[in-house]
């Protein structure tokens, strides 16, 4: 069929996407699970890399720095492809796509989180550490009991922004076959040839979920704003 002729009389038809709604919801569950798992995995790693970057041992801080910059400077999509098509199969055993997806996202998010945590730790005034040491705390105690709690608080808005960005980035896993929300929408679209209707509904679902989160983040930014 001539696509021009079809377009000239374009009639919107939301039927197929409405019929496919249960599939979209199943995809949404996967999307949420991907984002939650990734955040859970990447947060401790991000913190560890932040400390590694601040380490006084040159090699440790260099290695952490290299890791963080590498993952911040290359497209997430490449990282996903290397893990999903390369490392996954190379491991020999059949690894679940979901797990590979979480691994790829986590490696990426951990790098960004490391940068956020490091920035926050370094933004805490020197006097805080001095005050803690002066009251007889060890370096370790000063970090864990005085500096880190303030730094974590200060990093809340940026971590929240990272979360929203991660939530949307899970869609990239569709390109390696993880059946999340976007892929479910894509399959409906291929079936029905109702590209615009399907994709606008999928976009709307993302919007309805993400926008309230963004509003919350704006509130967090106001609440935890650091005077600069």
């Amino acid at each position: 069929m001539n696509p021009g002729a079809m377009l000239a009389t374009y009639q919107f038809d939301f039927g197929p996407v409405i019929d496919g709604f249960p599939k979209l919801m199943a995809g949404l569950v996967v999307t949420v699970a991907l984002a939650v798992s990734t955040m859970a995995v990447s947060t401790p790693f991000g913190l560890a890399f932040a400390f590694a970057r601040l380490s006084r041992i040159r090699l440790v801080s260099f290695a952490a720095h290299a890791y963080v910059d590498l993952f911040r400077a290359t497209p997430l999509l490449i990282q996903i492809f290397v893990i999903a098509f390369g490392i996954g199969p190379a491991l020999g055993i059949k690894v679940d796509l979901f797990v590979l997806g979480v691994a790829a996202l986590s490696l990426n998010v951990a790098a960004f989180l490391a940068e956020i945590f490091r920035g926050a730790i370094q933004s805490i005034e020197r006097g805080q550490r001095e005050a803690a040491i002066s009251t007889g705390m060890t370096e370790r105690q000063a970090m864990l009991r005085v500096v880190l709690p303030q730094a974590l608080r200060r990093s809340i808005p940026l971590v929240a922004a990272m979360w929203v960005s991660l939530f949307k980035d899970t869609a990239l896993l569709a390109l390696v076959g993880v059946s999340e929300l976007y892929l479910q929408g894509y399959l409906i679209m291929l079936d029905s040839f109702r590209q615009v209707e399907t994709m606008s509904v999928v976009a709307l679902i993302y919007f309805v979920l993400t926008y309230p989160q963004s509003l919350l983040i704006e509130r967090l930014f106001q609440r935890y704003r650091v005077r600069d």
Binding site: K168, A171, A174, Q195, M199, S200, V202, A203, Y206
Partner: peptide, 15 residues
């Protein structure tokens, strides 16, 4: 800002 880039692109191409 609330929608993945992938969807914006696909929507753009079709819409």
């Amino acid at each position: 800002r609330s929608v993945p880039l992938l969807i914006i692109l696909v929507l753009f191409v079709y819409a």
